[in-house]
Amino acid sequence: MAVDYLHYLRADKLPHMWCPGCGIGIVVKSMIGAIDALGWDKNETAVVSGIGCTSRAPGYMDMNTLHTTHGRALTFATGVKMAAPDKHVIVIAGDGDSSAIGGNHFIHACRRNIDITMIIVNNNIYGMTGGQFSPTTPYGAKAATTPHGNIDPAFDLGQLAIGAGATYVARGSVDNGRMLQKYLKDGMAHHGFSVIEALSNCHTQFGRRNKMSDPVVMVEWIANKVVTKAKAEKMPPEELEGKIITGELHRNDERPEYTDEYSQLIQRVQKKAGVHQ
């Protein structure tokens, strides 16, 4: 059945603000496809973001939407989820927003295993502020603040999430919206903190400085860089050099979810108080 995308969007706000060919639109579309497939009610869903190009996404979504301060989306989202544990909470953030200024909140949300779905649109750059390098900008790449080439090592966001305790971690890319939608759906359905990294293109700020100013060229660059996990397992290490593995990277259905833990705590405390009365 066809997904009625615009049912989930504030259609009067379109066309959106992103550059022609920007991958964020593809991620938002995949996200809507996933929400539709899961049958989530718009009224029961909150979408929270921080600052940056990606963080403008909630403004277009016809849900309970919250555009917060730079890096802090997860903190607001944690408040929403803890106060309304039976509702769906999605955070959508860029690479800088989630792993630089918001890095602390990111690892702690992973640690708590709170049932929030975090979508990271990783386009390797600060787009909105003018193309400065981010914690995921590749070594050697040019950015507004690395005119002589980037010397900062990059984060592997998937490994960071796994190490910090996220219980569902996957990586997709905007050259393959179908696959991305599958991981978003699985992540949203997962009861616990899920992280889905979407490798995306900022041809305007990253591509322009790195010989890929055309969106088609840059999406192709991403397509050539990614290897599915299944394929990678059969590849020799030398062929995997410089490749990025996509797929479901980690899953743990055993760890307790945080809002469950807290509601059990409330029950314990109230039972005990009842005994004393």
């Binding site: 066809a2 009625d4 615009l6 259609a11 009067d12 639109g25």
Partner: peptide, 27 residues
């Protein structure tokens, strides 16, 4: 349709066409 970042293309069956929401244009 899947790769269009702008929600500009729909490819559907004739029976699916009816219920689709369309953009009202930006205010």
């Amino acid at each position: 349709e899947i790769q269009c970042p702008d929600f500009a293309i729909r490819v559907v069956k004739k029976a699916e066409e009816e219920g689709l929401t369309m953009a009202k244009g930006k205010k």
